[in-house]
C-alpha cells in the first residue's frame, strides 16, 4: 500500500537534497513546510514553488536554525497547525566541513554532531511522538553511506551519521509497530553544495539531487526501512562493512 502524503515538513529545505525533495513533494500535490536557517534562500524557493500553484500557498516558510533545539516543540506544533495535519517529515539538514589530512578540530566535530544528529533528534522526537499517537505517518532521515564505516577522513561526519542511523533504528523499533514508517536514507555522493568542495575522484556514482530526491520519496512511500541512493550502494556497502578493521586501516583510498 503506497502512502498518500498531503502535508509534509522538510527540514533543511534551502538547498541540496532537502530542496529537491521539497520540490518533488510539491509537484506531487503535497503541501510542504520549508524549514532552514537561511531565510532569504527559503523565501526565494517558496516563491518559486508557490508561483506555479493556484489558490492557497503550497509551500510555507519557517526560518529556523536546527541547533536551536528548544524552539522545536512550539515550531513543530505551529507547523502542524498551519498545514492542518502532517503525514511525513524529512530531516535533510546536514553539514560536512573538510578536514586537512592531519587536522583534529573539535569545533567542526561539534558542528556536525549538532546539525546532523542533535537537530535531527529534536525534530524527529516530536514527529515520532505525534505519529505514534496517531498510529500513522512517515519519518525520513537523510543519513549517508558514510555512517556505515568510520572512515579516517571524515571523523565528525561518519560519527554523526552512524549516530543518526542508530537513532533512526531506535525510533523505528519504538513506533514501527504502531504503524509509523521510519526510513533511513543512505545516499552516496550527491551533486549538492555540500559535496561541491570534494574532488571528483571522491564522488563515485555521483547522482543529481533531483534524481536522488525521486529515489528517496519512492523508497519511502513504498515503506522501505533503509533506502540506499542509488541502490548500488547497498551491495557495495555490504562489502565495505565486511572488510576487517586491520585491513580497513591500510586502505588509503577509503580513509582520505
Amino acid at each position: 500500500m503506497s502512502a498518500r502524503w498531503n502535508h509534509a515538513i522538510v527540514v533543511g529545505a534551502s538547498s541540496g537534497i532537502g530542496m529537491a525533495i521539497a520540490r518533488e513533494l510539491v509537484a506531487g500535490g503535497c503541501k510542504v513546510a520549508l524549514v532552514a536557517r537561511r531565510e532569504s534562500e527559503l523565501q526565494t524557493f517558496a516563491t518559486e514553488l508557490n508561483g506555479r500553484s493556484i489558490g492557497s500557498p503550497v509551500a510555507l516558510v519557517y526560518p529556523h536554525d536546527v541547533t536551536q533545539y528548544e524552539e522545536v516543540p512550539a515550531l513543530f506544533q505551529q507547523i502542524c497547525h498551519d498545514l492542518s495535519g502532517l503525514d511525513a517529515i524529512v530531516y535533510a539538514s546536514g553539514v560536512m566541513p573538510q578536514y586537512a589530512p592531519e587536522e583534529y578540530n573539535f569545533e567542526k566535530d561539534q558542528q556536525q554532531i549538532e546539525v546532523n544528529l542533535l537537530g535531527a533528534m529534536a525534530w524527529i522526537n516530536q514527529a515520532a511522538e505525534r505519529f505514534g499517537r496517531g498510529q500513522t505517518g512517515t519519518i525520513v532521515g537523510i543519513s549517508s553511506v558514510a555512517g556505515d564505516r568510520g572512515r579516517g577522513g571524515m571523523i565528525g561526519y561518519a560519527t554523526s551519521k552512524a549516530g543518526f542511523n542508530a537513532y533512526l533504528e531506535a525510533i523505528r523499533n519504538r513506533v514501527g509497530r504502531l504503524g509509523v514508517k521510519v526510513v533511513t536514507v543512505k545516499p552516496g555522493p550527491v551533486n549538492t553544495p555540500m559535496t561541491e568542495a570534494l574532488d571528483r575522484s571522491k564522488k563515485p556514482l555521483l547522482i543529481e539531487a533531483d534524481k536522488a530526491a525521486h529515489l528517496i520519496i519512492d523508497g519511502a512511500k513504498r515503506g522501505k526501512n533503509v533506502v540506499y541512493v542509488p541502490w548500488m550502494w547497498r551491495p557495495i556497502m555490504a562489502i565495505i562493512r565486511s572488510v576487517p578493521s586491520f585491513i580497513f586501516q591500510r586502505l588509503k583510498n577509503l580513509n582520505s
Binding site: 529556523h64 524552539e71 516543540p73 512550539a74 499517537r133 496517531g134 500513522t136
Partner: peptide, 17 residues
C-alpha cells in the same frame, strides 16, 4: 517569532487522533 509560537502551544500529551 518562535516565542509567539510558544504562547500558542497546547499540551502535546492531549494530542489524539
Amino acid at each position: 517569532t518562535s516565542t509567539a509560537f510558544e504562547t500558542r502551544m497546547l499540551p502535546s500529551e492531549r494530542l489524539e487522533r
